[in-house]
């Protein structure tokens, strides 16, 4: 079977661990992360409190900003990368996120439909009085 190519492996990183870097580079990574996170936080709080932007866009903007900030934390503080040494860590993360998405999304969807068809007692009473 001559078409086999053998790839050396054995390189694997623990979650949170960085490739070999000097201390200075590592500190710089955290500084960049901190600055980005602070910027995103400030933007979130600003957008939530302002009437300078189109109001219906605010929830979407807040969610996007939150996701971006989580990404910043993952990359700069938790050192998650797309490299092959991180595959297992990223797969586990992806599985976790899928579950979070299913649980939160599913619950909100299901419960909003239940409420449509069978409102809680107080609404029910209000509707019929």
């Amino acid at each position: 079977m001559s078409d086999q190519a053998h790839v050396p492996t054995g390189h694997d990183l623990a979650p949170g661990e960085e490739e070999q870097h000097s201390v200075g580079e590592r500190i710089l990574g955290y500084v960049v992360g901190l600055v980005l996170a602070l910027l995103l936080t400030a933007t979130s709080f600003f957008i939530a409190g302002t009437d300078l932007v189109w109001q219906p866009s605010i929830p979407v903007a807040l969610i996007v900003l939150a996701i971006a900030q989580m990404g910043v934390h993952l990359v700069f503080f938790l050192h998650i990368t797309t490299g092959p040494d991180n595959t297992n860590n990223v797969l586990a993360l992806a599985f976790g996120l899928l579950i979070v998405f299913l649980v939160v999304g599913g619950t909100v969807w299901i419960m909003s439909h239940l409420n449509q068809n069978m409102p809680p007692m107080d609404q029910f009473i209000r509707m019929h009085s």
Binding site: V103, G106, T107, I110, M111, L114, M118, P120, D122
Partner: peptide, 13 residues
Amino acid sequence: GGNVMMFMNLIWA
């Protein structure tokens, strides 16, 4: 304002 049905939803998840 509690919601009984949320228990069924979560426990079956």
